[in-house]
């Protein structure tokens, strides 16, 4: 069994996520990920990322791994991501979710990721516990919409947008683990580039990801 089968991470699952292909020597990643039939060819892992009810700060922090990005792209190939502008997630090895769930579209995107990604990672405070957007949760949505579109000072003939193109807000903001099974969490607002790098390289090497002092932080 892979180490990943014996998770002690807080991933909310009694059954472990499908193990990743084991990394070979020297960062060489091999496996049956791309079902091309070319057995000995080095295949890149597919990674998708998205930002739901977040601020893209976690993605910015992701870019803070700086020159290690070059090393990373040798190992992974990006599917849906703000970096690629691919609109829908295909079958992937790793899905990375920034942000919590504040509206219907967030839920649809999250479910698409869960359905397509072998491993799902919650990236950053908002994905992990709702973060800043969840601070609206002690107010009723009715009160909020009323205040924003009707009552706020300076509004004239305000009305609540009802265009079917717009996603409807949920009554409360939820962290993503409350809606789908999440395999790994990287807390932080944002998590540091080093923390993201550590978790990704651990996973790519088939290790249980672990953040030590300084890398694990909630702020």
């Amino acid at each position: 069994m892979s180490e990943l089968d014996t998770l002690n991470s807080p991933a909310n699952t009694p059954s472990p996520p499908t193990p990743l292909p084991q990394a070979g020597e020297g960062s060489q990643v091999s496996g049956e990920v791309n079902q091309s039939g070319e057995g000995h060819h080095v295949k890149k892992l597919k990674v998708a990322t998205t930002s739901l009810a977040g601020c893209f700060g976690c993605h910015m922090s992701f870019l803070d791994i700086d020159e290690r990005l070059l090393e990373l792209v040798k190992l992974v190939e990006f599917d849906r991501s703000p970096l690629t502008d691919i609109k829908h997630c295909g079958p992937c090895d790793i899905g990375i979710i920034e942000g919590g769930l504040c509206n219907a579209e967030n839920v649809h995107v999250l479910r698409e990721f869960r359905a397509n990604c072998k491993i799902l990672i919650a990236l950053g405070a908002c994905a992990v516990n709702g973060g800043l957007p969840a601070q609206r949760n002690h107010l009723s949505l009715t009160t909020i919409l009323e205040e924003v579109y009707h009552a706020q000072h300076g509004l004239v003939d305000g009305f609540i947008p009802n265009d079917p193109e717009l996603p409807l807000p949920l009554d409360k903001v939820h962290p993503i683990h409350e809606v789908v099974k999440v395999d790994y969490f990287i807390p932080g607002c944002p998590p540091s580039g080093d923390a993201i790098w550590k978790v990704l390289t651990d996973l790519l090497a088939g290790r249980e990801p672990e953040l030590g002092h300084g890398l694990i932080h909630y702020d």
């Binding site: 991470s9 807080p10 909310n12 919650a122 992990v128 516990n129 709702g130 969840a134 949760n137 002690h138 409360k172 939820h174 962290p175 683990h177 409350e178 999440v182 790994y184 969490f185 990287i186 807390p187 672990e210 953040l211 002092h213 694990i216 932080h217 909630y218």
Partner: peptide, 21 residues
Amino acid sequence: QATAYELKMMSPHFDHFFPDR
């Protein structure tokens, strides 16, 4: 927070109560 770091708490795991306080 520091105790949660010490014990490597990566997520709150449970559903939040989100109390009004």
